Amino acid sequence: MLRSVAAPALANTAPASRALMQALVFYPSIPRYVASRMLGKRYPARALPLRLSSLPEPERPEGFERLKVRLSGICGSDLALLYGKNSPSLSPMFSFPAVLGHEILAELGGVRVVVNPVLSCLERGLPECPACARGDDHLCQNVTEGNFAPGMLGFCADLPGGWAQRIVVHRERIFPVDERVPDERAVLTEPMAVAVHGIHTALARDWPKELLVVGAGTIGLVTVKALRVMGYTGVLHVVARRSRQAELARSLGADHIHPSTQAAQQATGARRYRGLLGATAWRGGYEAVVEASGSPGGLQEASWAVREGGRVLLLGAPGMALHDFSPYWFREVRLFGSYCYSWDTFAQTVKMLTEAEGLEALVSQRFPLEAWPEALGAASAKKGVKVVFQP
């Protein structure tokens, strides 16, 4: 049976036999949650509920390996947690305090590896639930049960995530990286796996002739590259509001770049109608739209940018929002949610890395753990595309 390592993982002192490591620990705080949610990007990074701590290196449960973290990305979901944008209804599915970081490039015995951060029935020491039995371990029904606290790596109180110098990972979740793949590309494996899973779910079974990606941050740009690597040959439009994002989108395979979703809609000949109270409705649009911005406004735009009977793939993972659902029933738009990836999809993504040339250009800045306020400030201000920690 696997042992929970919650107590030693977050203790302030270590037994003499265990080495210390640096890690960034997230401590939930309702007052800071409310303040950061209200102030958003104006909330100072140094006031976020993070603490750089010296912790004992995690114990290695049976079936796990201890890894040295090489790079770990700052994801939009990390920022959503820190700035109070997550939905409170999801809180039982995660556990804190925890060392954050689920986009991980590490080393095992001198070999570079990437980490699938999912903690399913296998890692939790439980019989397979129906989802795990059919290969959908990312939808495991036991994410709050078993030998570990709720959540995946980076959102689990019992196992440290990648914003640390050392982590422990189950052997089944460790994947060697081809030596031809640079570090900056390899650290994007996890977000690329998110895109690959969503594309398989909503698009690949019946490729649209033309599609739109709303948002050119990490998820939007890895989606562009994943589409091309997976064989999409249709016309690919991207909404990119910054010149660097537009440049990267084109280099990764986009055919047309638009400064706004409205401009992208007009490019298809979609017709705009003005309604009461300044509301806007549209007829026509794209066969499929990928919402990759993660903003409630982006989802609203995507719901009108898709044509009647079309598909919207939600990759950006927005939380709570006041949303107009009329496009879905009035125009019979299909909405596909996508959150994670199965073991098979992650393994497929690792193999795709050798073909994903240029993706490494997304990594714009590296920071040591002790510079975390500057790192989070850069990530939240979107001064680059992908900001990573180098423990």
Rank of each mutant, 00 (worst) to 15 (best):
1 M>L: 11
5 V>S: 13
6 A>T: 14
11 A>N: 12
11 A>I: 10
51 R>S: 13
63 G>Q: 09
68 K>L: 14
73 G>A: 11
75 C>L: 11
79 L>E: 12
81 L>H: 07
112 R>M: 02
114 V>I: 05
116 N>Q: 14
123 E>A: 04
129 C>T: 05
130 P>N: 08
131 A>W: 07
139 L>Y: 09
141 Q>N: 04
159 L>N: 06
167 I>L: 08
167 I>P: 02
169 V>H: 08
169 V>Q: 09
177 V>W: 07
180 R>V: 13
185 R>D: 10
186 A>D: 06
188 L>K: 02
188 L>P: 02
195 A>N: 07
199 I>G: 03
200 H>M: 10
202 A>W: 01
208 P>S: 09
210 E>P: 01
210 E>Q: 14
211 L>P: 04
213 V>C: 06
215 G>E: 06
239 V>Q: 10
247 E>V: 05
255 D>Q: 13
258 H>Q: 12
264 A>T: 09
279 A>C: 14
280 T>N: 15
291 E>T: 05
291 E>M: 06
298 G>V: 02
303 S>M: 14
306 V>D: 04
307 R>G: 07
308 E>H: 03
312 V>I: 12
313 L>N: 05
332 E>L: 04
343 W>I: 06
348 Q>H: 11
350 V>P: 03
350 V>D: 05
356 A>K: 04
356 A>P: 04
372 W>E: 00
375 A>E: 00
